[in-house]
Each structure stands twice: as C-alpha cells, then as structure tokens.
Design a binder for these strands. Structure first.
Length: 299
DNA sequence: AACGAAACCAACCGCGTCGGC
DNA sequence: CGCCGACGCGGTTGGTTTCGT
C-alpha cells in the first residue's frame, strides 16, 4: 500500500528533457501559465511528462531570469550565513538569491560549498569577527572575543557554524547551544575588529537577540558612514551582523548605535526590525515557523 | 589511450502541507 | 471535520563529464 502515484507512470517519459520538449513547455507556459494546475498541464501542452516533472523543469531551467554558472563570493557568503542559521531550507535560501533555484543552491552546496565552508574558505569568512566565530565564543560560554583570527588556519575545524542557531550541519539535527547567554551592551564596547554582542535594549529588542558587530566585509560602502547589514532570523532569534567600520561613527559603543537604529526613520536597519519595509529578511522571518521551535528556556 | 574515481548536476521520489469540497 | 488532490520541498539517485593515474 504505497502512495497513489501523481501520474500514470507507464505513460510518462522520464530522464533528460529534449530541446523539443523544452520548447513545447516554454511556449505553453508563456502563453497560458500553469492555469493553476501542473497535473493537467502536460496533456494540454502535448507533453508525455509528469506534471511534477514539468514544474521542476520550468522552475529550475526554463523560466525567465534563471541564472546559471558560477556563484559569486557574495552569493556564497549569503548561502553559508543562511545555512548556518536556518539549515537546509533551500527554497528560503534561494529566495534571497534572485535567479538561483533551490536545486541549484542545494547542488552547489553539496558538491562544493560544504567543503569550503567546513574548511573556512568561504569568502570573507576568514576574518576574525565573522558571526559564525562569535557563535563559537557564545557556545563556549566564555569571553566574547572570538578565539579565531586570520592567522588561524583551523578556523572552522570545530564546526562552530552549526551552533549559531543550533543546527548541526553534520547530523542535520537542531541544537540549542547558547545556554541563556545574555550579554548586555554595557559589557562591551563596539570597536572595529572587535566582537560585540548585545541583547535587551530599550525594551525593544528582546532577550535572545544577538547583535553582532563586525563582519567580514572589507569596509562600509556608503559615504554617510552607515553600514550595510545582514540579518538572519531564526528560531525566534535575531542575528544581526553589521559591517565593521561602523564604530568610528558610534564611538560610545553599542548602546548608542542601537538607540540610533531604533529611532532613525527610513534607515534600513530600523525598517528591518520594526517596520515592514524590508527586503528579503522579513520574508525569511515570515517563512520560518520559529514559534514552534523556540523558547527562551532553550537557548 | 584507457580506465576507474570523483565531481557535477538534472531529475526523480516521497513526504508534509494546504486548500477545496 | 475529514478526505483527497495538488503543490512545494528536500533528500536522493543516476547519468554524464572531468580528472588522475
């Protein structure tokens, strides 16, 4: 008693798609779309294929604006950051990389990036204050400063990346390593090249939020001194990574920066955390069912 | 040049979820 | 409320290409 097949397996073709099949599907899709039904599509389009197969072929290969070829350093970094945070949620990760498909990213991860990641060779991850290194220091419940440095060739040998959100990339099982870590901003001063971790500010950022200062980016790019950010939301835990370079503008440390973050209108950071004007991060947040997986007791 | 191993990637499979009835 | 069909996702497979000996 197995599951009912989605199509008549005896009458569907399998294996590689031919150029003829591709053009049939493409033509049909451009004319009609799925009309809300992939299962019925092959017959309408004159294809002897399973609807699921058509869907996959369209989504992964034929639809417009698909990007093929080498992944950029930026893309690699995004994939690694998100993987460390949310695990193998490929469709969510793909959502942050326009033109890339989940299948593409999954293949790229499994064949190339996973190795690079565990060897600490992902671009801009070999620097001292990458958040993944920070997670390690939290995990060790020790000093906040990262134990890693650019001269440390064993950067990721203990797989600290898995612990930022509690996801073991080797066993694919969730872990909750942060053990009630709550370091307030007063514990630290934000400096370039230094790791800061903050939680509970102005009653607006809750416990369990990590704010990470300093990243692998070479510098702040904007002329007004604002910094680009990467935000990852996972398991109810917000991990915010700021480019290093910001502290020259916020010399009194994290408190001042966070205050500014919360009050400055139109600022992307502000918009991200408290408004719905965000680009991809809010989508990540929406897609994650973190309420079921998170409690303050667990971290 | 030949062969086996490793890497790559497109496609398949089955499960969970969702929405309509 | 339960059933069922369709969709979407992630793990896996297997064919092809590239690399090393």
């Amino acid at each position: 008693m197995g599951r009912t097949p989605c199509c008549d397996r005896a009458n569907v073709k399998k294996g590689q798609w031919t150029p003829e099949e591709d053009s049939k599907l493409k033509e049909y899709m451009e004319r009609n779309g799925t009309e809300g039904n992939w299962i019925a599509l092959p017959q309408k389009a004159g294809l002897r294929r399973c609807g699921k197969s058509c869907r996959l072929r369209w989504l992964n290969y034929l639809r417009p604006n698909i990007k093929h070829g080498e992944f950029t350093d930026d893309e690699e970094r995004i994939i690694c950051s998100l993987f460390a945070s949310i695990g193998s949620r490929w469709s969510i990760i793909a959502g942050q990389l326009p033109g890339r498909t989940d299948n593409d990213i999954k293949n790229y991860w499994n064949t190339k990036l996973k190795k690079k990641f565990h060897m600490g060779m992902v671009p801009s991850m070999q620097q001292k204050n990458h958040p993944l290194a920070i997670s390690y220091s939290l995990n060790q419940n020790s000093s906040v400063e990262s134990p890693y440095s650019t001269s440390n060739n064993n950067y990721y040998t203990s797989n600290p990346a898995s612990s930022i959100r509690g996801y073991d990339t080797m066993t694919s099982t969730p872990t909750y390593p942060l053990e009630s870590t709550c370091i307030t901003s007063t514990d630290l001063q934000a400096q370039d090249g230094y790791v800061g971790v903050g939680a509970m500010h102005n009653n607006q950022i809750k416990d369990s939020h990590l704010i990470i200062f300093g990243s692998g980016e070479a510098s702040c790019s904007s002329s007004d001194g604002s910094c680009t950010t990467n935000h990852i939301i996972s398991h109810g835990q917000e991990v915010v990574q700021y480019d290093h370079g910001f502290s020259s503008h916020f010399s009194s440390g994290i408190d001042e920066y966070v205050k500014l973050m919360l009050t400055e209108n139109g600022d992307s950071v502000n918009g991200y955390v408290y408004e719905d004007s965000l680009d991809y991060n809010i989508e990540v947040m929406k897609q994650l069912d973190y309420t079921n997986n998170f409690s303050t007791n667990q971290i």
